[in-house]
C-alpha cells in the first residue's frame, strides 16, 4: 500500500502561507524587543533595584517560568476579559509573548549583571554617577554582551513556542497550516512544509540575532 505525497497545493495557498509567516515574524519581533526591555527592567529590580519592588518581580518571574506558555496565553485571552480587559487575538498573543520572554530574560540578564566585577560599580561611583547611571552607562552593555548568546537562544525558543497562538485563532504560520490541512486533507504534507518553514525561520532568526549582537556590541568582550 503506497501513500502518494502531494505538494501541488502549495501554489494555491502561497499567499496564506506568506501572511502566516509575516504574522509569526511580527509576533517575535515585537515580543523580542519588548520582552527583552521588560526583562532588563526586571533584572535591574532584582539585582540592584529597591528592595520593596523585588518580591513582586520574583513572583512574576517564578509564576511565568513554572507554567506553560499555552496556559498563560489562555489566561490572558479567555481569563482577562472577565476583568474587563478585552483584546484581539493578535494583541493577546503579543502580550503573552512579551510577558513570557520578559520573565526568562530577567533571569538571563540578571546573571549577566551579577557577573559584573565589583570594581565596575566602584568606578562608576567614584565618577559621581548615581547607582542608576552606573547601571545604565557602565554595567548594562557588558552585561548584555556576556549573556547575548543565552538571550538569543531564548528568543528562538519563544519564537518556536509562538506556534500555539494559533489556538486562540491568531493567524500565524501554524494557523495557516491548520487552515490549509482542513481544506486539502493533506495534514502530513502540510505540517511537513510548516515544520521546514519554522526550521528556516529559527536558523534565520539565530543569524539575525548574531548580527544584532555584532551591531550592539562592536567591541569584543572585556
Amino acid at each position: 500500500m503506497g501513500y502518494q505525497f502531494e505538494f501541488g497545493w502549495i501554489v494555491e495557498y502561497l499567499p496564506l502561507i506568506v501572511s502566516g509567516i509575516a504574522t509569526t515574524i511580527q509576533l517575535i519581533a515585537v515580543g523580542a524587543v519588548a520582552g527583552i526591555l521588560l526583562g532588563i527592567a526586571c533584572a535591574w529590580v532584582r539585582a540592584l533595584g529597591p528592595v520593596w519592588l523585588r518580591p513582586p518581580v520574583v513572583a512574576y518571574v517564578e509564576l511565568i517560568r513554572n507554567t506553560p506558555f499555552l496556559i498563560q496565553l489562555f489566561f490572558i485571552f479567555f481569563g482577562l476579559p472577565s476583568l474587563g480587559v478585552q483584546m484581539s487575538e493578535l494583541q493577546a498573543a503579543n502580550l503573552a509573548m512579551i510577558v513570557n520572554l520578559g520573565a526568562y530574560s530577567c533571569e538571563i540578564v540578571r546573571a549577566g549583571i551579577q557577573a559584573t566585577p565589583r570594581g565596575q560599580f566602584e568606578a562608576g561611583a567614584s565618577l559621581a554617577m548615581s547607582p542608576f547611571e552606573t547601571f545604565r552607562h557602565v554595567v548594562l552593555i557588558p552585561a548584555l554582551q556576556r549573556i547575548w548568546p543565552a538571550l538569543s537562544s531564548q528568543v528562538v525558543i519563544v519564537m518556536l513556542g509562538s506556534a500555539v497562538v494559533s489556538q486562540i485563532a491568531a493567524e500565524d504560520l501554524t494557523f495557516a497550516a491548520n487552515y490549509i490541512q482542513s481544506r486539502n486533507f493533506r495534514a502530513f504534507e502540510t505540517y511537513i512544509v510548516a515544520t521546514i518553514l519554522y526550521l528556516a525561520l529559527s536558523i534565520l532568526l539565530r543569524q539575525a540575532l548574531r548580527g544584532v549582537g555584532l551591531l550592539l556590541f562592536p567591541r569584543r568582550a572585556p
Binding site: L160, G161, V164, A187, T195, Y198, L199, S202
Partner: peptide
C-alpha cells in the same frame, strides 16, 4: 530543537496515521 514541539506533535499524530 529548531522546530516547534507543536509541529512535532502534529507530524507524529498524522504521520503515524499514514
Amino acid at each position: 530543537q529548531g522546530t516547534p514541539l507543536l509541529m512535532q506533535l502534529f507530524l507524529a499524530f498524522f504521520g503515524l496515521g499514514l
